[in-house]
Design a binder for these strands. Structure first.
Length: 251
DNA sequence: AATTCGGTCAACCGCAGTTGC
DNA sequence: GGCAACTGCGGTTGACCGAAT
């Protein structure tokens, strides 16, 4: 069962790339362009599998890569994007020119996680760590109760769950798979992202974006002090009132 | 000087999605 | 519509290196 391996593993090199292999790969891609990764190794005279060549090119050899340390601005941008997209590293990388998904993923795991923890923010949920557990539980029972309780308060984020991955950023383990695609709305009272992940859907009054708390920008909602990047009405050139997930598609 | 430990990051693996027949 | 080939993504691993002991 299963598909055949992507390459004949018995006859391929593994591990670190040599200078000569790099040179061969770069020369071949410069001459013939990217693509056809499966046939590339043979054509380029490399004893590597296509996936390995692709990875090496994308993560290390591409001429438009920006090497070196991440700037403070890049840090904050990654944090913001992660809070919106979860571990969608390729989407995040698409918003950071010259950075790769692998690089950002590594950087997140080694630097930013610690940075957020030192700020007292949970790197997974982007919420304060010492917040009471009951406040961060997302369940449909709780959502229904919260919806009723917050109907008058008129604040909090509304999520439309069209597919499982959409829930990544808010903790999929705490959600009921049977509810995917039901168009149910979740109220998460203190996760104030106003993020709607779905095709535009004019019906259902419940889905109408709730009013944003006046004067609270995205940075502030993440627990960051007001700073130069405090953009209460604008984020990444997008109105924060409604972020269309599709607009973040890259590559 | 030798050893241990922890951090970093390049590379691998397995799976899901896409495409073409 | 079904299948196989191929590509891309995210999680994980392990080699390497510097700091600490």
């Amino acid at each position: 069962m299963g598909r055949s391996p992507c390459c004949e593993k018995a006859h391929t090199n593994k591990g670190a790339w040599t200078k000569e292999e790099d040179d061969r790969l770069v020369a071949y891609i410069k001459a013939h362009g990217e693509g056809c990764w499966r046939s590339l190794p043979k054509a380029a005279g490399l004893l590597r599998c296509g996936k390995s060549c692709r990875l090496r090119w994308i993560n290390y050899l591409r001429p438009d890569l920006k090497r070196g340390n991440f700037t403070e601005e890049e840090d904050e941008l990654i944090i913001k994007l992660h809070s919106l997209l979860g571990n969608k590293w390729s989407l995040i990388a698409g918003r950071l020119p010259g950075r790769t998904d692998n690089e950002i993923k590594n950087y997140w795991n080694t630097h930013i996680r610690r940075k957020l923890l030192s700020r007292g923010i949970d790197p997974v949920t982007h919420r304060p760590i010492n917040e009471h557990a009951s406040n961060i539980t997302i369940s449909f029972e709780a959502a229904a109760a919260a919806a009723a309780a917050t109907a008058r308060e008129d604040k909090g984020a509304v999520f439309r769950l069209e597919e499982p991955k959409a829930a990544a950023a808010i903790g999929r383990d705490q959600m009921n798979p049977g509810d995917w695609g039901q168009g149910k709305a979740l109220k998460c009272p203190d996760l104030n992202l106003d993020l709607c992940i779905s095709p535009p859907c004019p019906e259902e009054p419940l889905m109408e974006p709730v009013k944003r708390e006046a004067g609270v920008c995205f940075s502030c909602s993440l627990g960051l002090p007001k700073s130069a990047d405090c953009k209460c009405s604008n984020f990444l050139g997008l109105r924060t009132a409604m972020l269309d997930f599709r607009s973040l598609e890259m590559k």
